[in-house]
């Protein structure tokens, strides 16, 4: 596979390490009342879609960027690649 890195252009997927669903960005609030349940769902439950999947790849043998790649799990077609940091900020994460 080839991942079109937003800053470095197309790179072979073997330069990257895969983590999983980009929902891992959405780490729950540790002080919320339902934190235990929220962390359980965050840590263990997955949509696991057969189709478009937003997922985290790490450019381990490259610039060490974490990327959010939108990829179809049925065809492996990649439709979008973003810096995970930008996605995280867009989802309201900060410090």
């Amino acid at each position: 596979m080839i991942i079109d890195h937003p800053m470095l252009g197309p790179r072979d997927a073997s330069e990257f390490t895969y983590l999983g669903d980009a929902s891992l960005i959405d780490r729950p609030d540790w002080q919320a009342d339902d934190a235990a349940e929220a962390f359980y769902e965050y840590g263990y439950l997955r949509d696991n879609p057969a189709g478009e999947h937003q997922e985290l790849w790490y450019h381990e043998a490259g610039d060490r960027s974490w990327l959010v790649v939108t990829r179809n799990t049925l065809t492996h077609e990649i439709s979008k690649v973003e810096l995970a940091r930008d996605v995280a900020r867009a989802r309201g994460r900060s410090k």
Binding site: L56, Y58, E60, W66, R93, S94
Partner: peptide, 19 residues
């Protein structure tokens, strides 16, 4: 060594991007 560094980068970029 490798997996901890990866984990720290994940934490930095994906969880606390404004740090």
């Amino acid at each position: 060594a490798v997996s901890v560094y990866r984990h720290m980068e994940f934490t930095r970029q994906c969880l606390f991007p404004d740090m």
